[in-house]
């Protein structure tokens, strides 16, 4: 079981993840689109870049109604980012198994604090998803699976923090592998697609000289 998780399943999941993500992005970026024959009034590129950045800031008028999602959302995503790329065991893993080079990891306390932010953010976001009627109605099974799978990955990682019990490490790795396999076929793709999505919208509006 351990050799499968560390071996074939790992390579399988990584292959599915890489091919799936690349294929999805290629499909989105180079996919057939209706040509826009209108005369550009302004730069599409500038609009694309502007929107890419401006969408990080929530709309001022909406903010009071969505403050929970904004705060919890940032907590979760920033926490997960630091945790994913700067936790010492993750940096070591990327160095040894994927990239062949590493960088200086965050101190242990920062790793844990970012994990705490991520946990609190994810729990509150998912609860909001099931509690708020509108969020619940616009969520489908995929949203819940994505949230719960991500939570399981984080939880198994948290339980394996002592880094001495091989079974706990395998459990974490198995959940990561399931997550990687699920990634290209689900909402988790938003980790990549938010860029082309925003830029497409921004370019479309930018070309017409409209802010977005």
């Amino acid at each position: 079981m351990g050799s499968i998780i560390d071996g074939s399943l790992w390579y399988f999941s990584l292959t599915v993840f890489v091919i799936g993500v690349v294929w999805n992005l290629v499909r989105i970026v180079f996919g057939k689109r209706k040509a826009d024959f209108s005369i550009p009034r302004d730069s599409a590129v500038a609009g694309a870049l502007r929107t890419l950045i401006s969408r990080f800031i929530p709309d001022r008028h909406m903010l009071p109604r969505i403050s929970l999602q904004v705060v919890a959302g940032y907590m979760f995503h920033l926490g997960l980012f630091v945790l994913l790329f700067f936790a010492a065991p993750h940096v070591r893993f990327l160095d040894e198994h994927i990239l062949g080079f590493g960088w200086s990891p965050a101190p242990h306390w920062l790793f844990i604090v970012s994990a705490q932010f991520a946990f609190l953010g994810l729990i509150m976001l998912w609860l909001h998803r099931v509690i708020n009627v509108v969020s619940r109605l616009i969520s489908d099974r995929g949203d819940h699976i994505a949230a719960i799978l991500t939570f399981v990955v984080m939880l198994t990682g948290c339980l394996a923090l002592l880094e001495t019990f091989n079974e706990l490490r395998l459990l974490h790795r198995l959940s990561v592998e399931l997550w990687l396999i699920y990634f290209p076929f689900s909402r988790l793709m938003h980790a990549f697609t938010f860029v082309p999505s925003r830029m497409f919208t921004g370019a479309w509006f930018g070309r017409r000289g409209v802010g977005s």
Partner: peptide, 22 residues
């Protein structure tokens, strides 16, 4: 049990401070 206890301890220590926030 040592495995379970290790998982419990690490989980308890990491999740614990969030309890204060909530």
């Amino acid at each position: 049990f040592s495995l379970l206890a290790s998982a419990s301890k690490e989980g308890h220590n990491l999740i614990g401070p969030i309890f204060l926030v909530s």
